[in-house]
């Protein structure tokens, strides 16, 4: 029986529908990553400030995001903001907001790590050679941090893609939901569809995230 039910994938446009569902989550993560990277760079620079107030704010922001499960953040924005401020955000907008909020904190911490890993003498030498602060940053610090940062930023993208699977729990129709719909619609003709559909969803995620992880690993090895 189970061998026959695999054919549900090729019935009609089922497989394309699953891919469409996957695109929903991948699109959210790409938008969120696209927003998180510039914001994270700014936040990372903000975190290296010596000012105690700046330190306090970034500490609280980072710790809150680190401690709260992403699903809790999604609930807070999707249900909480509507209630508190009357903002009626769609589930997609809430998801983008939450993942950008989360991604900015994570990216900021990576940027901070990369920035403080540049030894003090690099700044001093640049100053001794007559570079202005801006020039030091642009010609000396940024190129070095970029190499450390890029593999980590790519890894953040795979984490983002994996985590966006949660949006099904705030009612978005993404790949798991589409899978569920296909299973429910074919309950009598294909009683074992769940095995194949969820198995394929599992592999779809794998084949999206795996190549990205490989690229990150290769870059990390080459630039070490």
């Amino acid at each position: 029986m189970q061998d026959l039910d695999i054919s549900i994938l090729f019935k009609g446009i089922n497989f394309l529908r699953l891919l469409g569902g996957l695109w929903v989550t991948v699109r959210i993560s790409l938008i969120a990553v696209g927003l998180s990277i510039p914001l994270g760079i700014l936040f990372g620079m903000f975190m290296t400030l010596k000012n105690p107030i700046a330190k306090g704010i970034s500490r609280i922001y980072l710790d809150f995001v680190r401690i709260m499960p992403q699903l809790v953040l999604l609930f807070l924005v999707y249900f909480g903001l509507t209630r508190a401020f009357g903002w009626n955000l769609s589930n997609e907008a809430s998801a983008i907001l939450v993942f950008t909020f989360w991604g900015t904190a994570e990216m900021g911490d990576l940027v901070r790590g990369a920035l403080i890993s540049i030894p003090r003498h690099q700044y001093d030498s640049a100053a001794a050679l007559g570079f202005t602060k801006m020039q030091t940053f642009y010609y000396i610090i940024v190129p070095q941090t970029f190499r450390r940062l890029l593999p980590l930023a790519i890894n953040l993208t795979t984490r983002m893609i994996k985590t966006t699977s949660l949006v099904v729990l705030i009612g978005m129709v993404e790949v798991l939901k589409v899978g569920q719909q296909i299973i429910d619609a074919n309950r009598f003709d294909y009683p074992n569809a769940a095995l194949w559909i969820y198995g394929v969803v599992f592999l779809l995620y794998f084949f999206v995230c795996w190549p990205i992880s490989l690229i990150a690993r290769k870059l990390e090895e080459r630039w070490r």
Binding site: Q2, D5, T158, K162, T163, S165, L166, V168, L169, L176, G179, I183, P191, N192, A194, L195, W196, I197, Y198, G199, V201, F202, Y205, F206, C209, W210, S213
Partner: peptide, 23 residues
């Protein structure tokens, strides 16, 4: 390790909870 690190927990759970009973 590759399979586990590149897939979300929610999808793993759906497979375990809804998929595996079929076998």
């Amino acid at each position: 390790i590759e399979l586990s690190r590149n897939t979300p927990l929610l999808v793993q759970l759906f497979f375990l909870y809804f998929g595996l009973p079929k076998v």
